[in-house]
Design a protein around this nucleic acid. Structure first.
Lengths: 169, 169
DNA sequence: ATTTTCTTTCAATATTTATTGAAAGTTTAA
DNA sequence: TTAAACTTTCAATAAATATTGAAAGAAAAT
């Protein structure tokens, strides 16, 4: 396989994965494109490579910047904006984990905390069952939350070394 | 807050989370409903509770059964099917992780393995950069894969105890 | 064997989500 | 200050995804 073909497949695969995880295809593909590119890309470059409209390119670039995965780069003597993607895969993973934790996990933890207050003194089996469920989900979510916090501070090789050793000992 | 209200919020929250993670809302809500229910539910019960059609209820129940999160229950002397959801939150988490690993992570690993074969002897910087990227992503995905494998075999409290200790030591 | 009760399927439809493209906005250069 | 080069916005449109409901299929009861 040659490089061009390889890049295409990489971009495709990343787009498909994104879709399955609630991230829009174009956003994932732009991100993939920036990962495989050694050089900064302009909006035009992206539009052409992915055959998408200016508006689409612009909006998804903005989202990627919001996610902290892409930066604007100012090129000396050039008027148009260029964009550069974060290339460090571990940083990318941590960043995504952090954003999703904040946007999705933390709000759920809040809801669960509220649900702990449902009929706290009831002796009904139905209510007890509900409390056990809420508590179990809360504990799990909380542990995941703490895991992500840990990941966020960790250096990659150290982290995987420690994690995977747990299972072999 | 009373139990009814609490259940509703739980079902809502679960549906919202599902949506964000590429799982359809109804599937997530049916699953939530079965978690909060102490009793088995019929298709009718589900249709009524969530105000959805028979076809919708049936299809999503089938999906949930495919995912291994719901079981059919035959009630003595009753003709209609009843359904029971897995209540153990840790089992649910493991099951979801296992299914998604197989369906989504493993195919990506395969693609990445293919991409390792791109122009293997080239000395171009462009190609070298591509190989580094593919390798980095592969390593990460592979480590996640092994982590999930480990989780799958682990007992909950043991697992979290080990994991969270990593970060405090 | 026929009817009743319940389940499954799937084409039609509705809803949600993503994309376009042209107009408005902004910045730099002439 | 005007024009040119570029970016952003957003209503209209397209595409993807989920849902309905009625018809066909199965299984049990009469």
């Amino acid at each position: 396989m040659n490089l061009e073909e390889g890049k295409k497949q990489f971009v495709q695969a990343w787009g498909a994965i994104g879709t399955q995880w609630g991230i829009n295809k174009t956003m994932a593909q732009i991100h993939a494109l920036m990962m495989v590119s050694t050089q900064e890309l302009s909006t035009e470059d992206i539009m052409e490579e992915l055959s998408i409209s200016r508006g689409n390119a612009n909006m998804n670039l903005r989202d990627l910047i919001d996610w902290g995965l892409v930066q604007k780069v100012f090129k000396h003597g050039e008027r148009r904006d260029y964009f550069q993607g974060e290339k460090d895969v571990w940083k990318i993973a941590k960043q995504v984990a952090k954003i999703r934790k904040t946007r999705e996990l933390d709000p759920v933890l809040k809801v669960l905390e509220e649900l702990k207050k449902v009929e706290p003194n009831s002796k009904s089996e139905e209510v007890k069952h509900f409390h056990k469920l809420v508590n179990d989900v809360y504990k799990l979510a909380n542990n995941v939350d703490r895991l992500i916090e840990g990941v966020f501070k960790a250096e990659e090789s150290w982290f995987w070394d420690k994690i995977l050793k747990i299972f072999t000992k």
